[in-house]
Nucleic acid binder design. Sequence first.
DNA 1: CGGGCGGCCTGGAGGC
DNA 2: TGCCTCCAGGCCGCCC
Length: 275
Amino acid sequence: MPELPEVETVRRQLDERLRGRRVEALRIRDSRLRFGLDETALSRHVRGKTAFSVRRRAKYLLVEFSGGGVLLAHLGMTGRFTLQRRSTPLGKHDHVVFELDDGDDLRFNDPRRFGVLDAFPRDREPSHKLLAHLGVEPLGPEFSAELMRGMARTSKRPIKNFLMDATKVVGVGNIYASESLHLAGIHPKRLAGRLSGESWRRLIDRIRFVLEDAIENGGTTLRDFMSLEGRAGDYSGSLRVYGKAGARCGVCDAGTIRRIVMTGRSTFYCPKCQR
DNA sequence: CGGGCGGCCTGGAGGC
DNA sequence: TGCCTCCAGGCCGCCC
């Protein structure tokens, strides 16, 4: 379940490995991804082109190619990129294969096909359907207590739902929402519109801390996430509340972590120190 | 129009 | 061991 740290982990590896690599051939074995797959666009913007950088926006990876094209990729729930020798047998869920000029394959593998691949000219990026509505980057300079408090002012939603709304702030998914609220001492059901400036400052600080800490540790693997080299993320062992129902709270050392369901998502918090 | 939620998917886990 | 059900959750799109 890739959130921002997992996607950023993959971005860094892809950027290093793809820079200067030409895609000699493109093999689309299954185009039934979340929104289908525009084979024409992929061929036009990727095949025969050389990658020169990999960026990230929210949980989207954006590979820039010579010729002005951009490849957009979203890992969905179970998507992963792998790099292997061309002779390695294709896996059941290796849906798209990018044959690189160094003899390796970059493969997009996604058992559940919640992932997305698309390609378009760079000048269309700002208006792309999946990118246009996105909110601020949590690790960027615009992510401030003033901005968030302003956006939340009229909201009657619980803070956890607000945090997971990508039109407000991107990249914070189910795991890191619970983790950052826990460190900030804020109950997930507190109404977003009721948070003080001080609470927002604290929460924003904890969100940044948790995301950066997770990136440094290669992300979190609960089940599916794998880096480019097929390594699981090390941050799983650092989770403080997610999946820890019944455990002693590591912050107050008094409460017992509780699991509740909010809008269909498992939510973990300490009833003692999160108010 | 903000926001809740259905649906897309498959594999793994747990129950019997 | 085998089948059946449930659950995981990002996020668009529908609908209230």
